[in-house]
C-alpha cells in the first residue's frame, strides 16, 4: 500500500516539478478525505496539480470555472420538465463527480460558493426536495486567487473551515523552471498520466489512514496545541474542534505517506500550517503563518508537568 502511495506522489511530481512537499500534502489531504484549497496566483500549476491527482488515483474528474455570474444550479444541476412524461427530471450538475476542480472559487458570488460548500460538507445534494448522495470518494480541489486581486468574493471563515488544507505552490526554483521550459506541455502530460492506484486501492488507503495509531502522548500534544490556539493570545479565534479532528487525520495521512503506521509530533508540525493557517487570523495583525509558527514554538511537544 505504501508503495502505491509513494508511486502516486512520484507520478504527480513528474508533472508538477519541484513541489514534492506540496504534492505529498495534497495526497495526504485526499487520503484523509479532506477537501483541498490551493491558493496562488494564476498560472502556477494549480489546475495541473488537480488534474494529475485525479489521473493518478483514477478518479472521475470535472472542472468548473467559477465566475461572478454563476448560479448554484450551474454546479448542482437542475430539474427539467420533460413534455413527454410530463414530469420534472433531474439533470445532474458537474458536482456529481469524484474529483471536482472548482477553479477560482472566489470569483463566484457567496450564494454559489455556499451551494458548493454545502455539498462538500454533507457529501450529498438536495435538488427540488430530492436528496442524492454524491459519489464516494468525493473531493473538491478549489483554487483561489489571493484576495487582493480585484473582482473576488473572499470565502468567509465558516466556509474556509470546510477545507482540510490550504496549500500554495509558489514559484518554481530556477532549476525546475529550466526543466519546465525545456519540457513538453504540462497540461498534456497530466492528461496522459497513467493511473497508479485503482479506486479500490484508494479506498483501502483511506481506510488505512484511520488505522494509523495516534498515541495518548500525541493526542495530548494536539489538544495542547488547540488549547493554546484558543488561550495563547495569538489568534482572534482559536481552532475549532473540527479543525482539531482534521489536524489529527491529516497527521495520520502524512505519517502514512511517510511509511509509518503511527504518528509522531513532527507529522503534526508539518501539517499544522496547511491545516490551520486558513482558519486563523493573527491577533497581532501579521501573517497567520507567522502566528502558527509561534504556536508551534510555544507548546511543548512533550508535556513538562
Amino acid at each position: 500500500m505504501q508503495d502505491v502511495i509513494r508511486q502516486s506522489i512520484t507520478a504527480v511530481s513528474s508533472v508538477v516539478l519541484g513541489k514534492e512537499e506540496q504534492i505529498r500534502l495534497a495526497v495526504s489531504c485526499l487520503l484523509a478525505r479532506g477537501h483541498l484549497l490551493i491558493e496562488d496566483l494564476p498560472g502556477m500549476g494549480k489546475t495541473t496539480l488537480a488534474h494529475a491527482l485525479a489521473r493518478v488515483f483514477s478518479l472521475d474528474y470535472r472542472r468548473v470555472q467559477f465566475t461572478s455570474d454563476m448560479l448554484p444550479a450551474d454546479i448542482l444541476g437542475v430539474s427539467i420538465f420533460n413534455p413527454q412524461t410530463r414530469e420534472f427530471e433531474p439533470k445532474d450538475g458537474p458536482v456529481f463527480t469524484q474529483l471536482l476542480l472548482a477553479d477560482e472559487i472566489n470569483r463566484a458570488t457567496p450564494k454559489t460558493q455556499g451551494a458548493l460548500l454545502e455539498a462538500m460538507e454533507e457529501r450529498q445534494v438536495t435538488l427540488d426536495g430530492l436528496t442524492r448522495a454524491l459519489p464516494d470518494p468525493f473531493f473538491v480541489v478549489a483554487t483561489q486567487n489571493p484576495v487582493t486581486q480585484s473582482g473576488t468574493f473572499p470565502l468567509p471563515e465558516s466556509q474556509l473551515d470546510r477545507f482540510l488544507m490550504r496549500l500554495s505552490l509558489g514559484y518554481p526554483s530556477a532549476e525546475m523552471e529550466l526543466k519546465l521550459l525545456a519540457g513538453s506541455d504540462r497540461r498534456q502530460l497530466a492528461v496522459n498520466l497513467k493511473p497508479v492506484a485503482s479506486g479500490e486501492q484508494l479506498q483501502h488507503a483511506m481506510a488505512e489512514v484511520r488505522k494509523v495509531r495516534a498515541s495518548r502522548d500525541l493526542i495530548d500534544y494536539i489538544q495542547r496545541l488547540l488549547a493554546y490556539s484558543r488561550n495563547g493570545g495569538l489568534f482572534v479565534a482559536g481552532l475549532s474542534p473540527r479543525a482539531g479532528i482534521g489536524l489529527l487525520n491529516a497527521s495520520r495521512a502524512w505519517a502514512l505517506t511517510g511509511g509509518r503506521d503511527y504518528v509522531i509530533p513532527e507529522d503534526v508540525q508539518v501539517v499544522l500550517g496547511p491545516v490551520a493557517e486558513h482558519r486563523l487570523q493573527s491577533l497581532a495583525g501579521g501573517a497567520a503563518a507567522t502566528a502558527t509558527q509561534k504556536l508551534l514554538e510555544s507548546v511543548p511537544v512533550v508535556r513538562r508537568q
Binding site: 495509531r213 498515541s215 502522548d217 503511527y262 509522531i264
Partner: peptide, 16 residues
C-alpha cells in the same frame, strides 16, 4: 518514539 507514540495506546482512561 516506540514507547511514546507507537506502543502507547490512545485509550485516555486506561493506564499504560
Amino acid at each position: 518514539e516506540g514507547v511514546a507514540y507507537r506502543a502507547n495506546s490512545a485509550n485516555l482512561n486506561g493506564m499504560n
